[in-house]
Design a protein around this nucleic acid. Structure first.
Lengths: 236, 236
DNA sequence: ATGGAACTAAACTGTCCAGTACAGTTCCGA
DNA sequence: TCGGAACTGTACTGGACAGTTTAGTTCCAT
């Protein structure tokens, strides 16, 4: 508990990995088992013996690969964080040269809320928040890589759209934050307090559509966005 | 860990308490010390011995007042949760009969963000989220009492304002959620990952003002809310 | 002032855990 | 095939912790 702040120990897997010797295999097995257990039981609630057993590995091997429990934990969370950042990141790029901004924003909003309500991802988020006091650097890293990077990606897209006259905004970063949280606030903050609760797909769609309407009302170039029709334009 | 789900054990202090015998005093001392320690170190990170010592009380007395550690924990958090809900709740009532809606919303937004960035409150939030898997009822109670109750209070206010023609909305609950999260998302979610970081007062004001502008653009009765001060939209 | 309830201090039980030690086994590249 | 690196199993150290027990002390209402 009084140990020095462990620095991250990344998984270190290059894009190619054809041979993968015994050592690398064990390393991955430990990370995987530790991820599963830490996510389910928290940091203090998980013992190294448990991790070793679950990974099919001796405790000694765990300590060969990771200095101590804290390092193992940070390695696990950093690996999960990279899993988190990527999908958001890629979705956003499709907005690059949109013809029908409203439709494309709606699509993006739905993809965002789908990604963000993934159960495993929610549990990582809970875990990082819960351990933020014990591992402050982990909290910062999570915010930086999962939240801020996504926002900046969207910011760049919005800046381009503003230059094309499709959006009116003078602070694209703030606008990006607004968009993301209009979509995610309600489901994400509800999910934080209700583990193992099914996500309400219809509710997500409704919130995503309303988020786009609000966003375009505030930042759209066309003064009159279609009056709120609640449900998507079709059906009814 | 396999015990039955403990039901809440509220502090049970009536509005009057002039005598407060020894027993009640000890009870309060335990709750107070436990609150401090649980909030700082988490559930598993805090021992009952520690709580007893910090409360200036023998361990036996702790167990006289609370069945076990789980019950003590839920009692502590429930007490904190009621602290959380109240201030929000009261701020909102002032919106009842507004003459200058924009100014009053701005005021409300600033008060909300000030309340929500209170360090102790943030720590309760982190704690409940972090232990949500271990204590699901706690998560539900927090959401119900801190989030949902506030939203419903604002919903009632918005419904009144819509009837007076000051707002245009067909789902006041959704509008209330939107307003609250426009104001709180950014500071709250940043704070979740960065304990012991100073809150940026200027940033809060800026976000609060922008939140009101966006809200009125989406739900305001007057079609053109004053364009955000700053420069005119274009720049290139 | 006194009897009982509440409290204290300390020791104890049974369990769990991080991290180490060590002797023996398996893997794998040269 | 052979030698070293990596791994296994088990046991151990030293400590922590939830919850109980006991014997004695303090408080306070009657």
């Amino acid at each position: 508990m009084a140990g020095p702040p462990p620095t991250a120990e990344e998984p270190r897997e290059g894009p190619e990995r054809p041979p993968e010797g015994r050592s690398a295999r064990k390393h991955r097995a430990i990370l995987s088992a530790a991820g599963e257990l830490f996510l389910r039981q928290g940091y203090l609630g998980t013992s190294v013996d448990e991790i070793a057993a679950s990974a099919g590995v001796s405790k000694q091997t765990v300590y060969k690969h990771f200095d101590d429990k804290q390092h193992l934990f940070t390695a696990v969370v950093f690996a999960s964080i990279d899993h988190v950042g990527r999908p958001f990141y890629e979705e956003i790029h499709r907005l690059e040269d949109s013809d029908d901004l409203e439709a494309d924003l709606r699509e993006l909003a739905k993809r965002l809320s789908a990604v963000a309500t993934d159960q495993r991802l929610l549990q990582v988020r809970r875990l990082v928040i819960g351990e933020a006091a014990r591992f402050p650097e982990l909290g910062h890293a999570y915010y930086e890589r999962a939240v801020d990077r996504t926002t900046r990606s969207l910011e760049a897209r919005f800046r381009g759209l503003a230059e094309r006259g499709l959006l009116r905004l003078d602070d694209p970063y703030l606008a990006a934050q607004t968009f993301i949280w209009l979509v995610l606030s309600v489901p994400l903050n509800r999910a934080m307090f209700s583990p193992e609760t099914e996500t309400d797909a219809a509710g997500l769609r409704r919130i995503a559509d309303e988020a786009v309407r609000i966003f375009l009302a505030a930042y759209g170039a066309t003064p009159a966005s279609p009056r709120r029709g609640a449900r998507p334009p079709a059906q009814a």
